[in-house]
């Protein structure tokens, strides 16, 4: 999917690389990292209306543990509880979480790693669950908005509530998952750090102004 993500910016690529481009580059790297685990664009991704040349070539390094196994049974941890899944191994983690596990805080917004509404933590880092086939989740630790804990999560939640960040709220689970991950690695983020970590999360209500403020406020409260 990353080829596609990069194309997002190609409207501008005939000009000088932009400030924005570099800021976005950080989350593209995240996406690339994710894509390397993505075994192939499956039929579903093909449906996402990408022209053939926009699609990534068959994935370079599919180290998909479950494909080594004889069974389709996939075992992973979801918010600390062990779960198994024996359905279609191509099923994106997003739909396993939502349709099978009935945890609906994680949202669908685009299905192609463009909006971040589906962001979860996988083994401690953010992950777009919409492009993560469940087959690649074997043995992993998945945390969703319903299960996120710790001092960063507490600080982010409080800061979000204190200044009423959400409008429609639909993107906010993803925003919060990205913001918590940011504070876990960068307890005192600069505006550039925030841009780098959060540019992959679209908010159509454009609550960005308050998201930025809330992250700074959360970082301040964590200091003490």
């Amino acid at each position: 999917m990353w080829a596609n993500a990069v194309k997002t910016n190609s409207n501008q690529s005939t000009r000088q690389p932009s400030e924005n481009y570099f800021k976005l580059a950080r989350w593209f790297l995240v996406l690339v990292a994710e894509t390397c685990l993505d075994p192939s664009p499956d039929a579903f991704h093909v449906r996402c209306s990408l022209d053939a040349q926009d699609r990534p070539t068959q994935a370079s390094t599919p180290h998909v543990r479950s494909q080594m196994r004889d069974t389709n049974m996939i075992t992973f941890k979801l918010n600390g509880q062990e779960r198994t899944f024996d359905g279609d191994p191509e099923t994106p983690l997003l739909w396993v979480i939502r349709d099978f596990e009935k945890l609906t805080g994680t949202k669908y917004g685009c299905g192609i790693a463009q909006c971040g509404a589906c962001t979860v933590h996988m083994d401690g880092t953010t992950r777009r669950s919409c492009i993560t086939p469940i087959s690649t989740v074997e043995g992993s630790d998945i945390i969703t908005i319903e299960g996120i804990e710790g001092k960063e999560a507490d600080a982010i939640h409080k800061a979000w509530v204190a200044i009423d960040v959400p409008q429609c709220g639909y993107c906010q689970s993803g925003q919060i998952m990205s913001a918590v991950a940011l504070l876990q690695t960068t307890p005192k983020p600069t505006d550039d750090d925030i841009d780098g970590a959060m540019a992959g999360n679209i908010c159509r209500c454009a609550t960005y102004h308050r998201i930025r403020q809330a992250i700074h406020n959360a970082a301040d409260t964590m200091e003490g």
Partner: peptide, 18 residues
């Protein structure tokens, strides 16, 4: 157009101070 890759949304790094 078909999705957010070619129908762009403003992102946080493009949001002005208000």
């Amino acid at each position: 157009q078909s999705n957010f890759h070619d129908y762009r949304s403003l992102r946080i790094n493009e949001m002005p101070a208000i």
